[in-house]
């Protein structure tokens, strides 16, 4: 979903060829995974069908005679998407909650389940902190986003650890 908005957004500054779009996408967003050409063209086909982009044909032949341009409807769409907050995604809580409750029910060490998870969270936080120190401002912002989310999860893990006795009592009832 965000790929098509990203490609649409890249057209706002002017029409582009498919290969140019792919290159711009990879430069701006493709840190971990670059786009396939096929994905660019299938996304463009869909946006075209929905009237969010239009095609300008250039004279001659060859595969890249098509230049894509954003339509007014496309601009309205991208504007709405940028302005709309993302729905908070569920993280690991439900899976971990199940594990913790099962551990308590079966007499296992539930705090270890949480500590193991906590260590894993902190391991990734170290990795992000390290990556942040090596990178540019874009890396820093991306890593910070991950770090704040991991921190929130980690706080939840800590809080759950502190509440294990209560949870255990509730389960025993």
């Amino acid at each position: 979903m965000s790929v098509s908005f990203a490609l649409l957004g890249l057209l706002e500054n002017g029409p582009r060829h498919g290969y140019d779009l792919k290159r711009s996408y990879d430069d701006a967003f493709g840190r971990d995974r670059s786009l396939h050409y096929g994905q660019v063209y299938s996304t463009m086909a869909r946006l075209l069908k929905n009237g969010l982009v239009e095609v300008e044909l250039e004279p001659g032949d060859g595969p890249d005679r098509k230049r894509y341009a954003i339509t007014d409807a496309g601009i309205t769409d991208i504007e709405a998407w940028i302005g709309r907050p993302e729905k908070p995604e569920p993280y690991l809580q439900s899976t971990l909650y199940t594990k913790v409750v099962l551990a308590l029910m079966t007499g296992r060490d539930a705090s270890e389940v949480l500590d193991t998870q906590r260590a894993e969270h902190l391991r990734l936080m170290r990795e992000m902190t390290h990556r942040k120190a090596q990178g540019d401002l874009a890396d820093e912002l991306i890593c910070d986003h991950v770090l704040f989310h991991l921190e929130a999860d980690l706080r939840w893990l800590e809080l759950t650890t502190d509440r294990l006795d209560r949870l255990a009592a509730q389960i025993r009832r």
Binding site: A119, L122, M125, R126, M128, T129, L150, E151
Partner: peptide, 22 residues
Amino acid sequence: EPRVAAYSNREAVVRDGRVREQ
């Protein structure tokens, strides 16, 4: 603060006066 702890090489969790080293 987890984000401060993330600058470390490793963490040791202190709970009830004892240490659980990671």
